Amino acid sequence: MLRNAPFARARWIGLSGVVIALDQISKLCMLAHFHRMESLAITPFFNLFLVFNPGASFSLLADAGGWQKWFFIALALGVSLWLLMLLRQHAQERLFPAAISLVLGGALGNVIDRLRLDAVVDFLDFHLAGHHFPAFNVADSAISIGVALMLIHQFRHQETP
């Protein structure tokens, strides 16, 4: 366990900051070098493919008419505040605050896109035998890894009745 709580919290907030920075840098590079819907094959199963998603995961509510931008911003900020409270309570642990930090950084990275561009920049495109997984980004990856770590933490700390 980490002994110094303020240092521990700063460390986890720093991890969120790294996620945000990597996410935004990768998106800025894509925006500087690609046009919307432009694709570059990297491997037989992976492309860089610039798309803008005004919706949520898997383009949920992408065609909702614009109100979803503010809904997803409010949702992400609300979840981020809750995650910060959890981080404060669990800062001296290891796995759970790492998970929280990844989700927090990913959520805020996508909020930045929604505020700047009215949509989230996605560009990682994996495919196999003509079937494409929906494009995603570094923030989405951090959120997914963070949620997986939260589940691992939950299974490890599950109390038996």
Rank of each mutant, 00 (worst) to 15 (best):
Lys69Ala: 11
Phe58Pro: 02
Asp63Met: 08
Ile20Leu: 13
Leu48Met: 10
Ile42Glu: 06
Arg9Thr: 14
Leu31Tyr: 03
Ser16Val: 05
Gly14His: 04
Met1Lys: 12
Leu40His: 06
Leu15Ala: 03
Ala21Met: 12
Asp63Phe: 08
Leu50Ala: 03
Ala21Trp: 11
Ser26Arg: 01
Lys69Asp: 12
Leu60Ile: 15
Ile25Leu: 12
Ser59Val: 09
Ala56Ser: 11
Ala32Thr: 13
Phe46Thr: 10
Ile20Phe: 09
Trp12Thr: 03
Ser59Arg: 09
Leu2Arg: 15
Asp63Lys: 07
Gly66Leu: 06
Leu61Arg: 15
Ile25Gln: 08
Glu38Lys: 03
Asn53Tyr: 07
Ile13Asp: 00
Val18His: 12
Leu50Met: 05
Ile42Leu: 13
Trp67Glu: 02
Ser59Gly: 10
Asn4His: 13
Ala64Lys: 07
Gly65Thr: 01
Ser57Val: 11
Ala64Ile: 07
Ser57Pro: 05
Ala5His: 13
Ala8Arg: 01
Leu60Trp: 14
Leu2Val: 12
Phe58Val: 00
Leu28Phe: 14
Val18Gln: 10
Gln24Ile: 00
Gly65Phe: 02
Met30Lys: 10
Leu15Pro: 01
Ile42Arg: 05
Leu31Ser: 04
Gln24Lys: 01
Gly66Val: 05
Phe49Arg: 02
Cys29Ala: 07
Lys69Met: 12
Ile13Lys: 00
Asn4Tyr: 14
Phe46Glu: 08
Gln68Ser: 08
Trp12Glu: 02
Asp23Met: 00
Met30His: 11
Gly65Trp: 05
Leu50Tyr: 04
Thr43Asn: 02
Arg36Ser: 09
Met1Cys: 10
Lys27Cys: 00
Val19Trp: 08
Ile20Ala: 08
Ser59Pro: 12
Phe46Arg: 07
Gly55Asp: 01
Lys27Arg: 01
Phe45Glu: 04
Gly66Asp: 02
Leu22Met: 06
Ser26Tyr: 08
Cys29Ser: 08
Leu28Gln: 15
Phe7Arg: 03
Ser16Asp: 05
Ile20Arg: 06
Met37Ser: 15
Arg36Trp: 09
Val51Trp: 04
Thr43Phe: 03
Gln68Ile: 07
Phe34Thr: 00
Gln68Leu: 07
Ile13Ser: 01
Ser39Val: 14
His35Glu: 12
Val19Cys: 08
Ala41Val: 11
His35Arg: 13
Leu22Gln: 02
Arg9Phe: 15
Trp70Asn: 12
Asn47Thr: 00
Phe45Val: 09
Leu50Asp: 01
Arg9Pro: 11
Arg9Gly: 11
Leu40Cys: 08
Leu60Pro: 10
Phe52Tyr: 06
Leu61Asp: 13
Phe71Val: 15
Gly66Pro: 04
Gln24Gly: 00
Asn53Ile: 05
